[in-house]
Amino acid sequence: MAWRKQVNVRLARKTGMQVVHRQGKLRLVPVPQRELAAPGFLFSSVRSGSTLLRMILNSHSEIFAPHELHLAHIKVKCELPAAKTAMEQLGFTERELTNMVWDRLLTKALRDSGKKMLVEKTPNLVFQWARVAQAFPDAKFIYLLRHPASILDSWQRARTTQTFDEAVASVTKYLTALHEARTSLPGHTVRYEDLTGDPAGEARKICAYLGVAYEPAMVEYGKADHGPLVAGLGDWQEKIKTGTVQEARPVPQIELPDTLKTLAIDLGY
């Protein structure tokens, strides 16, 4: 079933249409016009190394990978019914108006960076994967995976106030959305364990997928300016602040709930 979804996406793009999820079904709709060409989106769970990967990418001379932008929470809302009707008469729904704002925001940010390609990495955007694919039909997707047990352990270390059950529910939600996106949209998969074990090798593969030349300086991410490292904009802890790729912790030997066991198998662990 997964390969059929990906074939449908490829065929739709070639014919000027795209596949979108509406009311639980896949539908073909016209491809919207966007100012931003071929943006990249990094889909992952929380605590999977997305800040590390975005800093590696942002160290490339042609790639702008900003801190988390939280696009899913930037929306256009018509406050009056008349305003909504007026926009609909022009062919614009609130959803499309929001997509246009995203497009303009990302385009402006990329131009201000002076680089050629943008890669966005906010983890919670994975919940909007179908929306992102519809908003940016020529987007490229990078899937960053990590063993669910390691994610759960790291998430509990980062957010000590949450209970074990709350952490499990959160990680399950992220990994479910990630699995759905990965089986529906063609893209490139990188595993955190491989990224930390061979950062140069994995960076080469990602560069090849994005269509840019590999640059050795990418893995020395601490030499570049990546903006503030604060809560809400990505990982802010001491490990990421070292500026060098750190070896991954061994996968903790914990008993995973059945839902996470299944997801671990689905994601290749």
Rank of each mutant, 00 (worst) to 15 (best):
A135S: 13
P186H: 02
W102A: 01
T189C: 11
G187P: 10
P32I: 11
A177N: 09
G114P: 03
W102G: 00
L152V: 05
G187N: 11
H179N: 15
V7E: 06
A37V: 12
E96M: 05
G24Q: 10
T262M: 01
V119M: 07
T172C: 08
S48T: 15
P252I: 06
F164T: 15
P250R: 05
D225C: 01
K108P: 02
L145R: 13
V230R: 14
M218A: 07
V251Y: 01
K241D: 00
Y192D: 08
V29H: 03
T259R: 14
G24P: 06
L97N: 06
E166T: 11
V168F: 04
E79N: 11
V212W: 01
T189F: 06
L90G: 08
H70Q: 11
A217K: 15
G24K: 13
L80K: 14
A135H: 02
A37I: 12
S48D: 00
V126E: 05
A86W: 12
T107L: 12
G201E: 07
K115P: 06
S45N: 11
V19P: 01
T244R: 14
A135W: 01
E220C: 04
F127K: 05
Q246H: 11
T244E: 10
A135G: 02
A231V: 09
Y192Q: 07
T160D: 01
A158E: 02
K241M: 00
V190K: 03
I265V: 15
R34D: 01
H179A: 15
H179L: 14
K173S: 15
A224H: 13
E202L: 03
L36P: 10
K25P: 04
K14D: 06
P199L: 01
E215N: 07
H147N: 15
M218D: 02
V251Q: 09
F136S: 07
H60M: 04
S154W: 00
Q89I: 04
T163Y: 02
K173I: 02
V230G: 03
R27N: 06
V212T: 13
L263V: 05
S48R: 03
A264E: 09
T163P: 09
W129V: 08
A72F: 10
L42E: 03
S59Q: 03
L36I: 13
D235S: 08
L152T: 04
A12M: 08
L97P: 06
E88D: 09
L36N: 08
V46Q: 06
L178D: 02
